[in-house]
Design a protein around this nucleic acid. Sequence first.
DNA 1: GCAGGATAGTAGTACGTATAACCTCGGCGA
DNA 2: TCGCCGAGGTTATACGTACTACTATCCTGC
Lengths: 358, 358
Amino acid sequence: MSRGNGGADADLPGGRRPARPTSRDVADRAGVSQATVSLVLRDRWHGRVSPARAEYVREAARALGYRPNLAARTLRLGQRRTALLVVPALTTEFFARVHSGAARMAAEHDIGVVLYPSPGGVGPAPDPFASASATVDGVIASSMAAEALAGLRDGGLPLVMLDSEPGLAPAVATVNPDISDGMRQICSHLLELGHRDFGHLAAAVDTWTFHARARVLAEALARSGSARLVTTERAALTVRDATSAAERALRANPRPTALVCDDDVLAAGACKAARRMGLRVPQDVSVTGIDDLVLAAAVEPELTTVRLPAEEMGSAGLAALLSVLGGREAGNTLLPVELVRRGSTAPPPGNGGVPPGP
Amino acid sequence: MSRGNGGADADLPGGRRPARPTSRDVADRAGVSQATVSLVLRDRWHGRVSPARAEYVREAARALGYRPNLAARTLRLGQRRTALLVVPALTTEFFARVHSGAARMAAEHDIGVVLYPSPGGVGPAPDPFASASATVDGVIASSMAAEALAGLRDGGLPLVMLDSEPGLAPAVATVNPDISDGMRQICSHLLELGHRDFGHLAAAVDTWTFHARARVLAEALARSGSARLVTTERAALTVRDATSAAERALRANPRPTALVCDDDVLAAGACKAARRMGLRVPQDVSVTGIDDLVLAAAVEPELTTVRLPAEEMGSAGLAALLSVLGGREAGNTLLPVELVRRGSTAPPPGNGGVPPGP
DNA sequence: GCAGGATAGTAGTACGTATAACCTCGGCGA
DNA sequence: TCGCCGAGGTTATACGTACTACTATCCTGC
């Protein structure tokens, strides 16, 4: 079923390329000029080419399996419609979803998305933009891709930042989930359940979002009047590190009855730590996450968490980039989040129950 | 396209396009011809341009922030060095890792990777290759991206299949993890622990890999002589579906003491089902997964699983594609896997941890 | 002093596409 | 009869790069 290649013509190593048909080949076959082919195939022929001929050209293109050479097209138009997405590690479910959203939006606008996975692995970590930026006309970057950010300034490219403070640089658009609202919803939920002693399992990532989470948590608790933040521990975003950090947090005195985690992975580690210490979740300690990864519904108990709109961050990021490329002001987008109540939160152990031990 | 505010932003000089410098701009600045710039920057100048001038050109390029236009370059060279990666859903951690591996390998060979996330979402599901294939010269596709595979035949492009049966089509290269070895290792592990009654929680995906998993499991159990497959249930790759399917499997008579799952997500669901039925993992029932996702170490107990080399599948896929593009025979790559023993497997109840004697 | 080579650089062109500018040819009202 | 118009094309050109000729200059040995 594959295109009838002559068989022997394509096996020269490093030599001849498959020689895809060009618009001129189509023109020859249809007996028209190359310009006509372009007009027809770009749907710009109305009132300039007769319908019969247009159909004939399309037929010829189909027969030859013609696909326009995008490189040539973009060269002519001068529009290198490609966005570079810089994320810390695509191996993470969250950023995979961000990319998915960006890619879908990009497909609708017929532009490409190239990924620059920041150099987590080995290797010489080549200049991120030496190769990629050659065809890129805009960058969407997560603030968590710290290593790559230095090079962004020099690029002189339109920039959209994800998870970054709005308004820092006038020319930089930002896209953020409404993490303040999310934190507030978590706090309200836990306060309504009757919790007073809170712990914070924070991500050991030096990023605005995570700073904001800590700040909003503190503010919300302060505003409640009754609640207080008993302990704060920081952990890398791995289950293993989260577990030991959570153990430290749960050894605080008084022991927090609610552990607010910056992330679902941290929350999973926290549950693990609690169990290891003989505490039940949620009866003895409530745990909350953020993100709503697949993992959140897989662990036992299922995590109460805040669902961040990862896909929407990607699509909104791309939309913001298009907006900037279109000459408009760089805006700041805030996306709504949603509290998902599941099994890892409950009222704190009652006064008549087991008192917190030393 | 909104040009918008009339004289407000006067900082855009001349036309309104960003106007990235071209090699001719560099030439003007350096006082040489465009050809010289190209020679110098492509490192083809030895013995043709004086070292002093070459350095001067490089200096000018640096000062202007010049980046060669890759579109123009590939147009001239006629080499569209771009691979298309077709995966079922990038939102999945596994395929995110596959992409990561492919991207790293691609970067080393200075070629691009474009993702085609098969249309899981809404929308008209446009021709996958209408836009992408324009610049693509090879395709790496997972057999799990079923919807997109139909279009691949017509493309006439070199094709590398992931998770697909080797040798089906002569021109198609394949890359697979050694799933047979993985299944055998799981079986050996469980047989050594003393299990006899096995259950299989299979993925409801009509793909060669998953068929192979079932076949190899059956063969391994048959060869053991003592063990048998008590039940097989199929589930979609979600925790929710896996849970109900696992409940059915655990209600089989006799109840399996070991539940072999096609996937970590399924295994997480199985653990959940067991607990819901009052069974302890691993004391009452052992559960195994495949993949070794982050999730595998997050659930309680941590999953015994087979780690599939996702990144290597990506890089090997790209290597295979390069090989085919280079004119060599389409080969079949088999990548080693590794059994990861964790907490979800133990001797079956009533065996006391003593391996079965004669 | 001059052939001949090494050195240093430039002019010109091709790649495949999109589109502005131009051309041709009937029909038609004056 | 002419001038004009619009439909239905075509010709020519630009996009930015890579590289093949080609020219021009400077040595160097005989």
